[in-house]
Design a protein around this nucleic acid. Structure first.
Lengths: 130, 130
DNA sequence: CCGTATCCGGGCTGATACTG
DNA sequence: CAGTATCAGCCCGGATACGG
């Protein structure tokens, strides 16, 4: 289907924004409330469930589980369960997940660098915002 | 809450993922359904309202307006209305918006390059997902 | 320790209709 | 052309309680 489609899409030097469908599908995933943060926290290697819960401040068990499962289903992380007495489960990025890590990091960096400016602007130009 | 607790959480040259708050606030904005696509479509210069509506396939008037207004409030785009007989309004990226463009483009590129792989993985490893 | 299941509310979203 | 207004639906996401 799209194996060759995307190749020629950007042949003109433009961004392949035209396939809003694919992009939105992925952005919707990546751009949801926690995914990016979880991925970013796996940058330094495998993490345990409880570790991630601490690393991502406000996340609930439900959301962590859901995010992790989704990530695993999408092939971005691996899940390894050790059948030990105190159960231990580790999550790690796959190569696919790692490839997203760069972009994710960039986005987080941008957010960190510019969130103050955004807030500032938002206060200055109230055009009906809540 | 976590007002002071997270501030000193890092300090070792790591990514500032610890400020999940700011990051999430921005990611939530940027990562919503349409923002990224709209921004990407402003890469080549100012666009008119109706142009954007065509450029972003499935977007509704409501969502385009909302996204645009939000973007304007956040200082990522400018809105210029020309008092002409057929009303004309143009939207353009600010420097702040342009600085996000790089990252946005990277994310879109990633999505374009890997959406097939993700779909593939999703079909192969059903752990309860559709 | 690592999840899962259920309840439930809020906000985002789309469709439609109307205005300057 | 470029919005605004309203309504109804759906999914996200948090809290809680329970299972392996």
């Amino acid at each position: 289907m799209e194996t060759a489609g995307q190749t020629r899409a950007q042949a003109c030097g433009q961004l392949p924004v035209e396939h809003g469908d694919f992009v939105r599908e992925v952005i919707d995933r990546v751009g949801d409330k926690w995914t990016l943060l979880v991925i970013a926290n796996l940058r330094d290697g495998p993490r345990r469930y409880s570790q991630l819960q601490q690393l991502v401040p406000g996340i609930s068990q439900r959301m962590l589980t859901l995010t992790l499962r989704q990530l695993k289903d999408d092939g971005l992380v691996t899940r390894t369960a050790y059948a030990e007495v105190p159960p231990r489960v580790e999550y790690a990025l796959t190569s696919l997940g790692a490839s997203l890590l760069d972009t994710a990091t960039a986005l987080i960096d941008w957010a960190t660098a510019n969130h103050a400016a955004i807030r500032d602007n938002r206060l200055k130009r109230p055009s009906g915002r809540a």
